[in-house]
Every structure is written in C-alpha cells, then in structure tokens.
Design a protein around this nucleic acid. Structure first.
Lengths: 199, 199
DNA sequence: ACCTGAACACCGTTCAAGT
DNA sequence: ACCTGAACACCGTTCAAGT
C-alpha cells in the first residue's frame, strides 16, 4: 500500500455496514460512505466497482457473521435442540442487524460471473441441511430445510417490517410456530418418539 | 374535472402498476410514469403527494386484488381445503405480481396519520384468521395464522428472490411444507382425526 | 383547475488532471 | 498508486408562471 492510502476495502465495508445499521439502506450513499471514510466519493471506485458491489461485500460480511453464530448454536447429537438454538440465533441476528438482514434477500441483478455472494449464502443453508440430515435422513432433509428456512425468513422479515398487526406475544408466536414445524418435520423421519426432549 | 384533465388517480396508478410489473421498482420513476401517462412529472403531484404515496396506492390496489383471490379460494365448511387453496392463491399471486408483492413488505416510513395501507393489509390476515378460527378455535388461531403466513411469505419471497439454491422440485417443497404445517396446526385443535381429507 | 419549465438539492459514475 | 474536481445523466420535489 502506498504512503497515502486512506482507504482499505475492509475499512470501507465497516463504515458502510455501520451506516447501514445506524441509518438505513438509502442513507448508504457513496458520498455518505466517502465522507465517513474521509475521502471523496470517486475514490471508493478504486476498491468497489459500484455501490451494488460494495453492498454485496457488506452483505457477505454479515452473512459470514450469521453463519458463525449458527455454527455456535449446534449441539452435536441433539438435532432438536440444535435446530431450536439455530432458529433463535437466526432471529437474534436479524433483530440485531435488521438492515443487513434485509440485504440478504435483495434480488441482486443477475451478474455475469454468477452470484458473488453464493458461497456466503450457501453456508447457513448447508449447516441446517446437515443437522436435518442427521435427524431424518438425506431424502427429506432438503424438503424439511426449505420448510424451516421459509418459516424463519418469513417470520423475522414480517417481524422486522412490523407486519404482525394483531398484537399479542410475538415471542410466543415464534416458539409456537417453530415447535409445530419441528415436531412435524422430525416426526416424519422418526414417528415413534417425541422430539421435545431428545436424548 | 376540467376539460383538459389528462390524468386521473386511477390512470396514474394503473400505469405505475404496469411499469412496476413489466420493469422493476426503480424503473417506476415519477418521470417514467409521467411519460407513460403523457404528462410532465410535476403534474403527478396534483394527485399524489410523493412517489412513496403513489407506490402505496399501487400496493393497496394489488393487496385488494390478492384479498379478492383469497376469498374466492374459501370453501365453506372445509377449512383444510380452504387453507390449501388460499395458500396456492397466495403463491400464484406472488408469482404473477412479483414486484407488487415485494411492495407489500417494504418497510414504509412511519407515517404521521398511521399506515394508509393498514386496512388493505389487514383483510388477508383476517380472512386467514377466520378460517383457522373455525377449525381450531380463537385461542390458537392467531398463533396458527402467524405460523402459516410466515411460512407462506417466507417461501414465496425466497422463491421470487431465487434463494433456493440446491435445485430440486420447488413445487414439491411447497406442498411438503404446507402439508406439514397444516397437519401440525389443525391437529393441535383436533387431535383425533386426520385433516388430509376433511369432507 | 390543470399543466409546464426552470430550478434545487441530491444521486451514481466517469475521467482527465494533479501529487 | 492514490486521490481529486469537474462533469454527465439522472433522480424527487417545489413553485412561479402560463392557459
């Protein structure tokens, strides 16, 4: 790096991430990021080819963070407990990083060289799939993973968007829905025992 | 209306809706809408106080359309079939109106006079709640409705965002998840019979 | 009453020119 | 090698001026 390098890719991403969470997506303008970094907007294009590129990098950082917290939730040998803890970690991440979370599901424009976030997006799904595979086998694990992740994403994105209009205890609703789904999914692979207290 | 009224609120909404679905959200600029209507951008502000206001109106139109198709899916006396048909109608609407659908869950900035879309947003949830209420009683209906709508929203929004990365049959995944959830939810209110063929 | 051109304060992005 | 000012083509929005 040359003597007068005021920016690094990481520094820019961190600043953009902070702006994103403390303000909102449309406040993350190249000018605002540049100001916060102490540079002029055109300089950012030395590191990121576009605003979309920068936002993708931020989303990647956040996705890896999420993946890390999902992995910590795993309890080997206890699929049911692992899934409950992963679900809680997923929801907690979304609540603590609402704007980054909604970045995950932004339809990125079809990039020529494929989705640069693909790897980061795959990891959480793969972790979930693996746990479910242990519990109910490979065959139904994909279907089960899609059911569970659809519920998780739907629930937290509605929660973040204030889309639960009828009051009531949202935490209780999450526990209720999660328990209903996990019971249904795990029962399909093992119809003989209750999973509310496996091992 | 005066002799030279080139615009009506409805006409503008229809044009904006068409631009939204045929192009994308960021192509719905006031200038693009104005061009398509045959007028200059500032004229639109006679009917809508802002772009956000116009988009809210478009979202309201689409929500009422969705509600209409949900109501048609109801089969009185058959909660399970009604719910399956409503789920299919919900997903079909999202697939046929992807950009309008994603407008539903855009975090609208907290408006001073409350959410102008609140009524339109409430109706679908209320319809679902009513069906579930018949099936399992008021007490669990709210929890069940939230579980189901979280799954539905999560599934279709992932589908629209191409977030199912592992291939496979997406239709089958939807049927699988829906069946698992409906069985779990309806069983909780009536533990003695299967709901896969209620009259 | 409706529409318009001109203007304002912003965007993202490019690029020749500085050091 | 990095940074910058100036410029371009856009935005949303306001408003005085036209008919």
């Amino acid at each position: 790096m040359s003597a007068h390098a005021k920016t690094s890719g990481e520094g820019i991403r961190a600043v953009a991430r902070k702006l994103l969470e403390q303000q909102s997506l449309d406040r993350v303008s190249m000018q605002a990021v540049a100001d916060a970094v102490g540079v002029r907007a055109p300089s950012l294009y030395k590191r990121f080819s576009s605003r979309a590129d920068l936002l993708n990098a931020v989303a990647g950082d956040a996705l890896r963070e999420l993946q890390c917290s999902l992995e910590k939730a795993v309890r080997p040998g206890s699929p049911y407990r692992s899934l409950v803890r992963m679900a809680a970690a997923y929801r907690a991440f979304a609540k603590n990083n609402p704007h980054a979370y909604s970045l995950f599901f932004d339809e990125s424009p079809p990039s020529p060289n494929g989705d640069p976030l693909l790897e980061a997006r795959l990891a959480p799904a793969a972790t979930l799939f693996q746990i479910l595979s242990e519990a109910i086998g490979d065959e139904e694990a994909l279907l089960a993973a899609r059911t569970l992740v659809a519920f998780l994403h739907g629930f937290v994105s509605m929660e973040l968007g204030n889309a639960f209009h009828f009051g009531g205890d949202i935490n209780a609703a999450f526990r209720f829905g999660l328990a209903a789904i996990l019971d249904a999914l795990l029962a399909s692979g093992n119809k003989t025992r209750s999973h509310s207290r496996d091992r």
